[in-house]
Structures are given as structure tokens and as C-alpha cells.
Design a protein around this nucleic acid. Structure first.
Ligand SMILES: [Zn+2]
Ligand SMILES: [Zn+2]
Ligand SMILES: [Zn+2]
Ligand SMILES: [Zn+2]
Lengths: 132, 132
DNA sequence: ACTGATATGTTATCTTATTACATAAGTTGC
DNA sequence: GCAACTTATGTAATAAGATAACATATCAGT
């Protein structure tokens, strides 16, 4: 039921850093924030991220080369996820959309394409940044 | 009507390299292919790409850090574009989807988010790679 | 020719990600 | 316990992708 995984020390540190962050973090920013916890090399971050991505606890934002903690880390498997990314403040909203999911399935079905992962990222300006 | 732009030498070379390519090219691959034409530095490629992206003649695939010539370079402004990217052979199919476009508009409208660019990339295996 | 805008060339640097190799720690079966 | 195996870590080096800074050059309008 619950998708919580037993995390290793490094994985927990990385996940924690992402959960505390207000916005997406690059791998190297994570590294910097974990220097005091003994992190010394990018690979320590990337290896932890790989697992966390596997577990679905973290998502990668392709258009930013950055990572965010999942907004629903206990829901297990997601359907198709979309992100709205504010270019002003960096805030990210994660949401699922079954209509888009179905539309993707339609296209792939009709074209004999077997999808493995779908990226949907909306760049723009968030409501609170528009009011300022 | 037509969206064809007068291209500079460098822009034309880059666009041509992308048009001839069977699959997306990274900026550095483009650079290598244009060595004989006098290209020496990444910036020459990136500057040309910037313009071509502006003109809508080239698209950037965020999940690949690579670039493709637009499949419909003469249609002027696109609506929302989606890409299906085969991870086996590298082939990319570009298509527009008004349903996804409308779904994105719904979400952004309801959330007061002003979108500037939307990325939709489906990774997977294409039909011809599945039959082999 | 003077001016301003756009395009180029070149070097250095920065950011992001992976390869390679060595070591440590946990798990399973005996 | 111990061998055999798998998983996790540590560290250094390097590859791949992108930009900053600065100097020139080209072209249009006046
Ligand atoms: Zn999620
Ligand atoms: Zn914002
Ligand atoms: Zn296009
Ligand atoms: Zn294929």
C-alpha cells in the first residue's frame, strides 16, 4: 500500500534536502547543502537520486536539470504527472491529469509506440508572481 | 504566411545539419559536423540555435539536451507540440495535440498561471523497433 | 563617413553528469 | 562463523552541455 521505502543514510539526506527546499534543486546544489553531512562528490548525490527516482519519491524536471520531492510521496505509483514551473520564483506545482494521460495513450496506441515515461512541463509565471 | 526567415551563414549551416540528420543532435555533435565548414566553438552553434528556436524552425528536446528541425517548418506558429522519442533508434515524431493544449489551458486558467512554453515528451520504443 | 544594431570569432569558465576503480557493509546459504 | 554475493560508499578523473567576457566584423540607415 504505502510506497515508503527504507532509505539509506545518503538517500535520506538527499530526500530531506529536497523536502526542505522551497523549489527544485540541482544535483550540485544538493551536494553543497550536504557538505556538512560529509558529502564530497557529485556521485553521492546522483546515486541517491537514482534510487529516489526509482522509488517515485523524487521527480526530475527535464527543462531545469533539477529535482523535486514528490508532492504525494505516499501515493505509490502515479499516473501521468505534469509540472507547472514558475520562472520568476521557481515554485513548482505537481499535478496528475488523466485527460492528458489518455490523450497520450491514444496517440501511442494508434502509432504502435510503447511509452515508458512521459514528461509534461509547463513553464511560465505563477499566480502569486503575477500579482506583484 | 510562410515563416521562412532569411538565415545567416551559420544559422543556415546549423539548420541544414539538423535537417539532414535522421535523429536529434546535441549542440556538440552539430559542432563536430560543421568543423569542415569553419566552426570552431560551441557558441557558434548555440547562437545559431537560439535564433532558429526563436523562429520556430528548430525544437529543443529537453529530456535529451538535443535539437531537431521542425517537422513543419513552414507552418509558422505551432500550437502545443508533443514529441515521441524512441530510445532505441533515436527517431522523433512531432505532433500537435489540441486536446492536451486545451487541458493545459484549463489547468493554467484555473490556477492563475500564465504559461510561456509547454514541453511534452513521450519516451519509449517506436513501432518499427518493436518489430525487430 | 558616422552611428547603431546584429552577427562572428575566440578563449576561458561554469554547470551537469558519468566512468573507473577501490572499499565497506549487509544478506544468504552453509 | 565464513564464503559468496549483492548493495551501498568513497574518491578521483573526465566527459558533456552551456554560458560569460571580450574583441571584430558586417550591414543598414543617415
Ligand atoms: Zn509525484
Ligand atoms: Zn512564481
Ligand atoms: Zn515544429
Ligand atoms: Zn525506434
Amino acid at each position: 500500500m504505502t510506497a515508503t521505502h527504507e532509505l539509506t543514510r545518503n538517500q535520506a539526506l538527499v530526500f530531506n534536502a529536497l523536502t526542505k527546499a522551497e523549489s527544485p534543486l540541482s544535483a550540485y546544489t544538493i551536494l553543497d547543502r550536504l557538505r556538512d553531512d560529509g558529502f564530497r562528490a557529485p556521485l553521492q548525490v546522483y546515486r541517491a537520486l537514482d534510487k529516489l527516482l526509482d522509488y517515485g519519491m523524487v521527480h526530475r524536471l527535464e527543462s531545469l536539470n533539477a529535482f523535486v520531492a514528490c508532492a504525494h510521496p505516499h501515493c505509490g505509483e502515479h499516473g501521468l504527472i505534469a509540472f507547472a514551473i514558475c520562472e520568476k520564483c521557481g515554485q513548482v506545482s505537481e499535478f496528475s491529469d488523466v485527460v492528458i494521460e489518455e490523450q497520450v495513450r491514444d496517440w501511442t496506441g494508434q502509432n504502435g509506440f510503447k511509452p515508458s515515461k512521459t514528461t509534461v512541463e509547463i513553464r511560465g509565471t505563477c499566480a502569486s508572481c503575477l500579482n506583484s
